[in-house]
């Protein structure tokens, strides 16, 4: 075997129940959870982490189910992204989720990657997602065991950017995340799964794993737009999900979430001030401004932070406009294809 960058030596632990998976995590917190593997295996090959074992949870059947009730959709953490993209129930109930799922990476990745894995995606940074040689030659950063963040050397935290597509959709849709741990199961709002800290962006306690997502059907209109250079493979330079409800012509619910710009998927604050108004130019401009003011893109990619900020804002305006338009679905479909 001569191929470069092999996986480090490690064992596979293959539990068949959630309890066994949690027990394995409790026994050794350094073990990593392996679901689809599209992110983890690449990171392992680049030496970003060196767990003694991988807990392969794909044998846990209960985590691979989609169940629908009148007011909720329950999606197991192991449901694959291609299934989310193709499931007619999800398309009709949660357009943003479908659009986010289909925007992830490339088709082969979506056949492996899971919704839980995409939620737990590692944050990314141009100084981190490199080979071990690269990081050693350049000098390590906060996230890779060094003393300083190369993106913002004066600061005390890591700015690696959360770059998952599914999380903003679920945050906009007001989904809850079910988490299993040594103390049993608990639920948190999707936005509360995350910290604004690139090194430890997931608020999971020791031994915990994400087991399911529950999405309410109460917000009728939703969508996701992603800015990237290529229509395949690329992580978002910025991604915007919006879910809204209108009563008559007036907004009665509005949630906007952005990915790619912060160390967590960011729920935009202040959208309640727009409720009760029609989706007109002034509302679109207000939404654009809210996004532009709250996102904090840093130099974690080769593309300038100001570009990612202005595009995030522009996508929010465009998406909200499309959701407010009478032929919402058609308009959004087109925008999704070009952004």
């Amino acid at each position: 075997m001569t191929a470069p960058l092999p996986l480090p030596r490690l064992r596979l632990i293959r539990p068949t129940t959630v309890e066994a998976a949690v027990a394995a995590r409790v026994e050794c917190p350094q073990h990593e959870v392996l679901a689809g593997g599209t992110d983890l295996l690449v990171n392992l090959r680049r030496g970003l982490l060196a767990p003694p074992a991988l807990i392969d949870i794909t044998g846990i059947a209960e985590l691979d189910e989609v169940r629908t009730t009148a007011d909720r959709t329950r999606i197991g953490a192991l449901v694959r992204l291609d299934r989310l993209a193709e499931d007619p129930a999800i398309a009709s109930r949660h357009a943003a989720l479908r659009e986010a799922a289909v925007a992830v990476a490339a088709p082969g990745h979506r056949r492996l990657a899971t919704v839980g894995g995409n939620l737990c995606l590692q944050t990314r940074c141009i100084y981190v997602n490199q080979s071990a040689w690269w990081r050693a030659a350049h000098g390590a950063c906060l996230k890779s065991g060094g003393e300083v963040c190369h993106v913002a050397p004066e600061g005390a935290r890591c700015h690696a950017a959360f770059s998952g597509d599914v999380a903003p959709a679920l945050i906009a849709l007001d989904a809850e995340i079910e988490i299993a741990g040594p103390a049993g199961r608990r639920r948190v709002a999707c936005a509360d799964l995350y910290h604004e800290e690139g090194r430890a962006h997931l608020r999971l306690d020791s031994g915990e794993i994400v087991t399911a997502i529950e999405v309410p059907t109460s917000i009728a209109h939703s969508g996701y737009l992603k800015e990237r250079i290529r229509r395949s493979f690329d992580f978002p330079l910025a991604g915007v999900a919006i879910a809204c409800r209108t009563e008559g012509a007036e907004l009665s619910a509005l949630r906007i979430a952005v990915t790619g710009t912060n160390s967590r998927p960011l729920l935009i604050e202040g959208t309640d001030a727009l409720l009760g108004r029609r989706i007109d130019e002034s509302v679109l401009a207000a939404a654009e401004k809210l996004v532009a003011r709250q996102v904090r893109p840093m130099r974690t990619t080769l593309f300038p932070a100001n570009h990612r900020r202005s595009v995030a804002a522009a996508l929010a305006r465009r998406l909200l406009g499309a959701l407010g338009a009478p032929d919402a679905a058609a308009g959004r479909g087109h925008a999704g294809g070009t952004a």
């Binding site: 596979l12 689809g36 593997g37 599209t38 295996l41 690449v42 392969d56 088709p107 082969g108 990745h109 056949r111 492996l112």
Partner: peptide, 9 residues
């Protein structure tokens, strides 16, 4: 199903 064989064990 077509998948990249470098992304699975």
């Amino acid at each position: 199903e077509p998948i990249p064989s470098c992304l699975t064990l």
